[in-house]
Structures are given as C-alpha cells and as structure tokens.
C-alpha cells in the first residue's frame, strides 16, 4: 500500500504499467520533461525516455489521432489532454476515428488506447479550464467513459483502461488531484472493472448518486445529513459507459427516493439518463421523483467558480423536497 493522492496514483499506475508492458507509452503536451502540467506523468520521462514518453506538438488532433495510429500498429498509448476543455480540437479524431475504428472495420482493427483528461471546475479556471464534457463522450458509441473520484479507483480504473482492447476516456477530477489521499493497493494487478458502481455508504432515507469531482460535495452532503439524523445511501458511479444500472435500480427501488448530483450542465447531463432509466424501470417503487442537482446551463463562469458547482446546500434542499414529496 502507498499513501497516494490522485495524481500520484496516476503517475504510479502509469509507471507500473509501463514497466510491465513495453507497448504502453505516454504522449501529450508537456508530459515529458515537465511531467505534465499537473505532474501526473512525473518521473516517467527519466525512467522511460523520449521514445515512450512523447512530448507532442500542441495539437489535440495530432495527439488523439496519432494515439490511434499507434494503437492499431500494436502500441497501447496513454494520451494526456491537458484539460478536458481541449479535447474539442481533437474531437473529430475521437468521434469519427477512434470511437468507430472497431465498428467500421467490422472488428478487423481495434484501438486499445487511453485518453486522460483532467476535468471539472472549482479551480478558478473559467469556462476553458473547468468543463465537464463527459456527456459528449458517453453519447459517442464505441468509447468507454470513466470518471473516478478516489486515488484507489483512479489507479484501478486507469489500469483497466490501459489493458482494455477498446478506447477509454478517463476523466480525472482535477479539483481533487491533491485534495484526497488514501492508501492505494500496491498490487500491480489492482484493477477496477468498468460498469460497476461503488456504494460508499448505506442509509434508508434517500439515495445520493454521483461520480467524479462531485463525489466530494455529495459525500459532504451525506455527512451533513447524517449529523441531522437522516441516512443516505451514497453511490459513486465511477464508470459512465457502461454504467451500473443494476446497483442504481436496486438501491433506489429499496429506498424510493434519490438525488442525482453532477457538476456538468443540467440539460441532457449524464444524470438525465440515470433519471430516465429509473423512471422507465422502477417508477412504481418511487416515493418521490428523481431529483437532479447539477451545474447550471451556462458556460462555466470564472467569478462564480464555487457558486456554479452543486454543493451541500443544494443537495440538502433536494433531499428535503424528496422527503416531503
């Protein structure tokens, strides 16, 4: 076990996987000598050299597209997009090329690559350093999308992603990069499967569902509720494509009330899918409508960096509404 924060968990996992498998390489802007602007690739350049830790031109289309060309030729590239907000210059590569490689070739080619993207707000970055673009990727058939919230899950899901034979977008909660530390299993096989949610707390009054950076506010909401005698079940989805429908439906059916917390824009956010599925599958079990607490449908603002994010106050208000319904 190592006590790691989230970036250390990323660097440590990349190190272990590169040591294990020569075909694993890292590419992106500043990932080499600089070790990445968030230092998530720190130490790798010294250990593995410029061939396997590639400082790329400042072009997301080149990074994502080249990662594809490498992957079909036998490598397992892990590309870093400096901020998830900069995935868009490479969006066509991701949507038109990477995601459809297996499908359009009838399974003849496949693209085992990973694209890491620091994501989410609360870092005073304004709208070009704070967005949560997960819905774009979930809406693109052929991509796996995961958004872990803890060092241990990040390590385990990154490892699963690197070993996956399909392309994986790993969204990383940059607000939590250094804010959370925990013991991460040193086991070089520590892997978290996709499509499995984690029930982080159990309670009978309401189910709080979240993922990624919003897990922090969700967890604090659950603790504030606990202090007031209300017990929440807290589900960390961790993986969005595929997502763990069964765990969500079992818990929500058992409790009858749920509040869905995510920090991306409200309309057609990922939680809209979760809410619709709950309504389709277990309407009869509901004591209250599924309630979403999310970011607002505005570009991410600079000055209102914190107010934009869904926090415990809004979560608790939603819980009250669910309890009153």
């Amino acid at each position: 076990m190592s006590e790691w924060n989230l970036v250390q968990a990323i660097a440590g996992t990349l190190d272990a996987e590169m040591a294990r498998d020569e075909s694993v390489i890292v590419l992106g802007e500043d990932v080499g000598k600089r070790g990445g602007v968030f230092l998530a690739t720190r130490g790798l350049f010294d250990r593995y050299g410029p061939d396997r830790v590639i400082d790329t031109p400042l072009s997301e289309a080149a990074i994502i597209g080249a990662a594809l060309g490498m992957s079909v030729h036998g490598l397992r590239p892990v590309a870093e997009i400096q901020f998830a907000d900069y995935a868009f210059p490479g969006f066509d590569q991701l949507v038109s090329q990477v995601a459809k490689t297996r499908y359009r070739s009838g399974g003849a080619f496949h693209a085992p690559l990973v694209i890491r993207m620091p994501s989410g707000g609360g870092v005073k970055g304004g709208h070009h350093h704070s967005q949560n673009p997960e819905t774009h990727f979930v809406h693109t058939a052929g991509l796996h999308v995961v958004y872990p919230s803890t060092p241990s899950d990040t390590a385990g899901m990154l490892r699963t992603a690197i070993r996956s034979d399909d392309p994986v977008v790993v969204l990383e909660p940059k607000r939590l990069y250094r804010a959370v530390k925990e013991q991460v299993p040193a086991d070089p096989e520590h892997a978290v499967p996709f499509g499995s949610a984690m029930v982080r707390k159990r309670g009978d009054d309401v189910v709080l569902i979240s993922y990624g950076a919003s897990m922090a506010e969700t967890a604090r909401s659950a603790e504030a509720l606990h202090a007031q005698g209300i017990e929440a079940t807290v589900i960390d989805l961790r993986s969005l494509m595929p997502w763990d429908r069964d765990t969500v439906l079992q818990e929500v059916a058992r409790v009858g009330r749920c509040v869905l917390v995510s920090e991306g824009p409200h309309t057609v956010g990922f939680m809209s899918e979760v809410a619709a599925t709950i309504a389709e599958e277990i309407l009869d079990a509901l004591l209250a409508p599924p309630l979403r607490v999310s970011g607002y449908d505005t570009p991410y603002p600079y000055a209102q960096d914190r107010e934009y994010l869904p926090g415990p106050r809004r979560v608790l208000n939603a819980v009250q509404r669910a309890l009153d319904y």
Binding site: A62, A66, G69, M70, S71, H73
Partner: peptide, 13 residues
C-alpha cells in the same frame, strides 16, 4: 482525418 493516425503509425514504426 486519417493523417494524424498515419503519423502515429509512422511514429510507432
């Protein structure tokens, strides 16, 4: 759209 991947395959080669 196939040219960045072609570059990637070349780098891998």
């Amino acid at each position: 759209a196939h040219l960045p991947p072609a570059a990637g395959t070349g780098i891998s080669m």
